[in-house]
């Protein structure tokens, strides 16, 4: 009979405890956010928080501009990052599989480790002046600036998830399509990408979630005006930056409480994306998603 020796049992118990603690932590965070939001449900707090005006001096604490800002920023960043990500995948998966492909992959891996602040810092000096000269008005701290920088940040995530998924496909698919006379690009376009649709979609959603959760890029580059992002060149504020800014300067008023609403919205958005990934592609675990979020937040604060 198989006997479990004590150390193994301890490890098992330890792991079980760790799992319980993690689950409890997540649920507690959610409950805590809801608890702190409760005062908003009394009186007309809710309508004041979910409105389009953020003017604390006039008693207006609307976070909707920030919600719109976060959505616009993450969707735009994904839109900018996705095509080159697919291009890079095509390059390393079918066009060049030798030393060059390996170097590209190593660089992509390396990119995931670069602290966000470096991207933001470089962007302030390189991108902001160029965007400023492009637009007729404005400071250059804008939706476009933040989106381009964020696109660079999420690019490696999309590339690596997509590439992993492509590598998991049956190699005979590529061989068979090559044997039918498909060029490498045709193999990618007509066989491999359609075969990996779910993985590609999951990669895109992962990128979107990561863009949505990032704080420092928008804090440094978006200009942080609490207004609706009406054009590419307008200054705006994301939910994450909003939380950071308000918490750093205030701790009492309704403004402070509205931060919890912002946190709750963010939490739910990210949880929804997480759920979609689970539904879309079982092979890419939600763990990868959370891990990415965590590393980013560690770097941010």
């Amino acid at each position: 009979m198989l006997k479990i020796n004590p150390p193994e049992k301890w490890i098992e118990t330890g792991l079980f405890m760790a799992a319980v603690v993690s689950a409890v932590a997540i649920v507690s965070i959610l409950l805590l956010l809801i608890y702190f939001c409760l005062p908003l449900f009394s009186g007309n707090g809710l309508s004041r928080v979910f409105s389009w005006r953020w003017q604390p001096i006039d008693g207006q604490f609307g976070i909707l501009p920030m919600c719109a800002g976060s959505l616009a920023l993450s969707i735009l960043a994904l839109g900018i990052a996705f095509p080159p990500a697919i291009g890079i995948c095509t390059l390393v998966h079918v066009l060049s599989r030798g030393v060059f492909a390996r170097i590209v992959l190593i660089l992509t891996h390396f990119m995931t480790g670069i602290p966000t602040v470096i991207y933001g810092f470089v962007s302030v000096f390189v991108l902001v002046p160029r965007i400023r000269s492009l637009s007729e008005a404005g400071t250059g701290f804008s939706l476009l600036t933040a989106a381009i920088t964020l696109a660079i940040l999420i690019l490696p995530t999309i590339v690596l998830v997509c590439y992993t998924r492509l590598e998991q496909l049956d190699p005979v698919l590529r061989l068979a399509s090559a044997a039918m006379g498909f060029t490498p690009i045709q193999q990618m376009r007509h066989v491999l990408m359609p075969a990996a649709t779910k993985g590609v979609a999951a990669a895109a959603i992962l990128g979107l979630g990561r863009a949505m959760g990032d704080t420092l890029i928008s804090l440094m580059l978006a200009g942080n005006a609490a207004q609706f992002p009406g054009s590419l060149f307008t200054s705006f504020r994301s939910l994450t930056a909003h939380i950071g800014l308000v918490v750093a300067t205030d701790s009492q008023s309704l403004a402070y409480q509205s931060v919890f609403a912002a946190g709750l919205v963010l939490f739910l958005l990210v949880a929804a994306l997480n759920l979609i990934i689970r539904k879309t592609d079982n092979r890419i675990t939600a763990n990868a998603f959370l891990r990415v979020q965590e590393t980013r937040h560690e770097q941010n604060f």
Partner: peptide, 28 residues
């Protein structure tokens, strides 16, 4: 690509594409 169309190849394991029966033949 001409060469490979003129010289067809069948593999040990059936290499069906993960599409419909029809598309397996029409797409190539």
């Amino acid at each position: 690509s001409d060469l490979r169309r003129r010289v067809g190849m069948v593999f040990q394991t059936p290499a069906v594409l993960p599409f419909s029966i029809e598309k397996n033949i029409t797409m190539p």
